[in-house]
Amino acid sequence: MNGALNFQSRGRQSNRRSSSGHAITEFAVGLIVLIGFVFAPLFNIAIIPIRYLIVEGAMTEMSHRVVLCEKRTEAYDMFTKDPWFTSILEKCSVTIANPKLKLTIISKDGSSQIAVPNGVSIPAEWLPDGSFQPSLYSMELSADCSIAPLFSSAAGLPGFTSPITLHLHTSSPWENFSRNPITSQYFVNE
């Protein structure tokens, strides 16, 4: 009787030990597979759209700020000297390369357009009282943005283990169409 009871209790113990251990082993493997091959890569990739949205927002904000300047030269100055743009993107692990700001004028019917870079005057026919009027004046901001995933290294698959580089551009319409009373020139041409 005693022997039967001992056998019973031993059976229960071994059963409990082996089944729980089996679950832990299975659980650990499952967890590693899940975290290593599903969770981490997904999280790694999922941060890129969030950062992309932030970059897009920052670029839109910057292009909107520069068009509020009085003169076009002030807009270029703000773009090159204002630390806000680069600092906010650095905080989001986004590296900016080849940032460019240019004035684009498009005739209202869209048939012709001209790009005016920094330091170049607008041709007379494209001025607000020129022959190509009415036209749309906008400041276009473009840059190559390297958006890093959450865990990244220098080399590897872009977007998964290394930053993905996107060429982004935003534009905002120029605001100040008045003339400078000192020079009689349009502020957009100064």
Partner: peptide
Amino acid sequence: QSSGSVLILAMVVIGLLAVSLLIGYSYGG
């Protein structure tokens, strides 16, 4: 139970991932 626990765990982890991403996107917003 042991085979079911992995499935449940997977669902929980995926759910957490989805919720955390949703919250992340909301703050990005």
